[in-house]
Design a protein around this nucleic acid. Sequence first.
DNA 1: ATGGTTGGCATCCAA
Length: 258
Amino acid sequence: MRIATFNANSIRLRLDTILDWMAENHADVVAIQETKVDDDNFPRLTIEEYGYHVVYHGQKTHYGVATISRMAPTDVTFGMGDPAWPDDKRIVAATYDGIRVVNTYVPNGTKVGSEKFDYKLRWLERFGDRLGKEIQSHANTVWLGDINIAPKPEDVHDSKRLMGSVGHHPEEFKRLNAIVEGLGLTDCFRKFNQEEGQFTFWEMFRPQIFERNLGWRIDHIYATQPLANLCVACEIDRGPRAGVRPSDHTVVYADFNA
DNA sequence: ATGGTTGGCATCCAA
């Protein structure tokens, strides 16, 4: 099974990019973040006309997630699964041929020291509990999406300068490690590729930033141990970021012999 | 320390 993740930065603007990529790359499941559309206006019919299934959880203007698939999903769940937690449309989970796929748009954090940064840290702590419960009932689980953290020096273009800023902060590393190590997850991309300069996101507001490869690896695919053993490839496809009027992110995908 | 651009929507917020 081929499973991909892509922060589309508006699914309505990027739907052609997504459907073309899915067809050309024979992807089975594609997790989308930042759909930026409420459920009433989600382009469900267009996706279904292509013969795909889609589950989505969004709101007007900000955030929002969707997972498009060739096979029908089962056991679809939305949000943190905690009535006390604000549902800001960042999580959708479903099972595809026995693989649990948890698609998340982790809060950006905006500015270190801000309320939003604190929320990001608390969100990660709460999500770790939620993901742990998923894994208890699904040994084969993939957690993927826009994680909004570049966890290692080699995951940013200038770790010395960026260390301590949003997306590359020790407090974020601590929260992410607690999930990844606590649940025994494998970063599928790093199973195959240890090189620096392997990025999935390049900011919009600097000229020639993609051409100069001043990026971040913040879109990740994690797998539980039994599933990671079946992971035979994981790659970044820079194609979608190089296109006309692109998202600021590009596609990451992993192949599983499952 | 600040700014730059983009998307959605409303004349600003989030990234």
